[in-house]
Each structure stands twice: as structure tokens, then as C-alpha cells.
């Protein structure tokens, strides 16, 4: 191909994006690692302290809770958000009058601000909120269930919000995958007398297996990065006993304030990176295969 532009033209076009990339993505990736070995604060410090931040990580009881919560979050969210959106996508796949409206409505929770819907959840799950009020009125429970103050109940309240908010997003991923499943396979299975449940397991699931793996990885990574749900439902303290926290929650709480401990928050950031690295690497490999 004949070169039809001056040598610097592409660089002019790339430069603004490249500057932002270097200053706000590449440099922070390296710098976070450096900062984790220092006692730097928002407005002061910067002395190298070796592994002191990492030693402190090991003794941080809140971090232990955060890691346990992350495991629970992943274990509960991955199966729920891998299968429920698939079932909804099956409902919303075949043509039907008004389907576009349903799809749009199913996507509302995804678009909605996490803070705003967490505020709604808080109102619904309050000791005097809709759910407790209704259950007490119906005589199912005597005293209010402490959805927002129980150590595990608060975590599961947050999980319920994450699942509710994620259904529509993963449904869309499944919709395009379902479109690629050969409808003749379903017909053949139906002729052979396979019922809907049988066909789900032996036709649909194998047909969208790759997307299921993709969704499971995406859910896993986002469960590891949870923040807003816990911050709004449990407040700045991380629930009554400070145990309803996540790794990102602790990054935020140690860096916040007039003179935040950025060094310690950086060590937590490195930890977050290491936790998410295996699923992220899987995802990258997965995308490369899709591209090929």
C-alpha cells in the first residue's frame, strides 16, 4: 500500500488517547505496586516501609471478613447469575408480540444507578419496610427480620440486590447465543419425545455452553469487585460489626478522608488485582479464541 499520509499524522490522532492511557491506566498499574511499599498518605508521607503494609494486611480482621464475604458472594452469585438469566433469555428469545417492551423492562435494573436501587432496597428491607411489614401482617414472622443489621443477613441482602441488578445484563449475552442454536435440534428432540426440561439440558445448555462459561467468569470478577451495595446498605462502617465489607470497600475506606492511607490502600489494590487475575486471564484467553 502506498503511504498517503505524513509520518506524524497517525501520532497526532493517537496522542490524546495515548496520554490518557499512560497517565490514568498504565502508570497507575505500575505506581500502585510502588505505593504499596510506602507509607504515603493523601497529603504527606512517601517513605519506603518495605513489606509493612502487607504485614498489616495479614493482621487486619476486617480484611479476613472481606475475603470470606468475597468467597460467599462468588459462590452464591455465580450459579444464580449463570442460570437465571439463561432461563429469562429463553422466555424472551422466540418472537412474541410486545417482546421488545419486556426486554427493555428487564434491562431497567442494569441501567439504574446502583446507589439509587440500593436506596430502594434499604427502604424495602428496613425493620418497618415493605417486606417486614407485609410478613408481620401476614403472620409469617413475629419480630422484624434484621435484613440490614444482621452480619450474614446484610450480606445476603446485598447479594439479592446484585443478582436482581445483573439478571438483565447477562440475559442480553444469552439472547445472541440462543439465536445461534439450531432450531432443528429442538424440533428433532421434540419429535423424539424430549420434554422441555430434557431439551433444556440436552439441546439448549450444550448450545450456549461457551456463553455460560463467559457469563460465569464475568459474574465471578464482578462479585470480587463489589462495593456500592455494601456501602449503601451497611453504611460507611460496613454493617453493625464492621464485618460486611469487601476488598474494594476497604480500599475506599482506608483511602478516604482528609489524609487517607494511600500506601495501605495500594497494598489492598495489589491484593484485589491478584484475586481477579486468574478469572481475568481466563477471560482474555476466551476472547482471543472468540476472535479467532
Amino acid at each position: 500500500m502506498v503511504r498517503t499520509h505524513r509520518w506524524f499524522t497517525p501520532w497526532i490522532m493517537v496522542l490524546p488517547a495515548l496520554v490518557i492511557l499512560c497517565v490514568f491506566a498504565l502508570w497507575p498499574a505500575v505506581n500502585t505496586f510502588f505505593l504499596s511499599f510506602t507509607d504515603v498518605r493523601t497529603l504527606s508521607g512517601g517513605k519506603i516501609v518495605g513489606l509493612a503494609n502487607y504485614r498489616q494486611l495479614l493482621d487486619d480482621p476486617q480484611l479476613r471478613s472481606a475475603l470470606l464475604n468475597t468467597v460467599v458472594y462468588v459462590v452464591v452469585c455465580v450459579p444464580l447469575l449463570t442460570f437465571l438469566p439463561l432461563l429469562i433469555a429463553i422466555l424472551a428469545e422466540k418472537p412474541l408480540r410486545g417482546l421488545a417492551i419486556f426486554r427493555t423492562i428487564f434491562y431497567f435494573p442494569v441501567i439504574a444507578s446502583a446507589v439509587a436501587v440500593a436506596v430502594i432496597w434499604k427502604f424495602l428491607l428496613d425493620d418497618r419496610g415493605l417486606i417486614n411489614g407485609w410478613a408481620q401482617h401476614a403472620g409469617i414472622i413475629q419480630d422484624a427480620v434484621p435484613f440490614l443489621s444482621g452480619r450474614w443477613l446484610l450480606l445476603f441482602s446485598a447479594i439479592s440486590l446484585t443478582v436482581w441488578k445483573g439478571l438483565g445484563y447477562y440475559m442480553v449475552l444469552y439472547l445472541s447465543a440462543l439465536g445461534n442454536v439450531d432450531p432443528q435440534l429442538h424440533e428433532a428432540a421434540a419429535v423424539d419425545g424430549a420434554g422441555p426440561i430434557r431439551r433444556f439440558w440436552s439441546v439448549t445448555v450444550p448450545g450456549v455452553r461457551r456463553t455460560m462459561v463467559l457469563v460465569a467468569i464475568l459474574v465471578m470478577v464482578s462479585a470480587m469487585r463489589i462495593f456500592t451495595e455494601l456501602y449503601i446498605l451497611g453504611g460507611k462502617t460496613g454493617g453493625v460489626g464492621g464485618q460486611d465489607v469487601s476488598v474494594v470497600f476497604l480500599i475506599q475506606s482506608s483511602a478516604a478522608g482528609a489524609d487517607g492511607r494511600l500506601g495501605y490502600a495500594s497494598a489492598l489494590s495489589v491484593l484485589l488485582f491478584l484475586i481477579t487475575l486468574p478469572p481475568m486471564a481466563l477471560l482474555a484467553r476466551f476472547n482471543r479464541k472468540v476472535d479467532e
Partner: peptide
């Protein structure tokens, strides 16, 4: 491959 939350501290410092 970088989770955004893992680099916000350095971004904040910048």
C-alpha cells in the same frame, strides 16, 4: 485485564 478499582488509588494521587 485491570479491574478499575485496583488502580483508583494511584489515579487519585495523580
Amino acid at each position: 485485564v485491570l479491574p478499575a478499582e485496583a488502580t483508583i488509588i494511584s489515579q487519585f494521587q495523580t
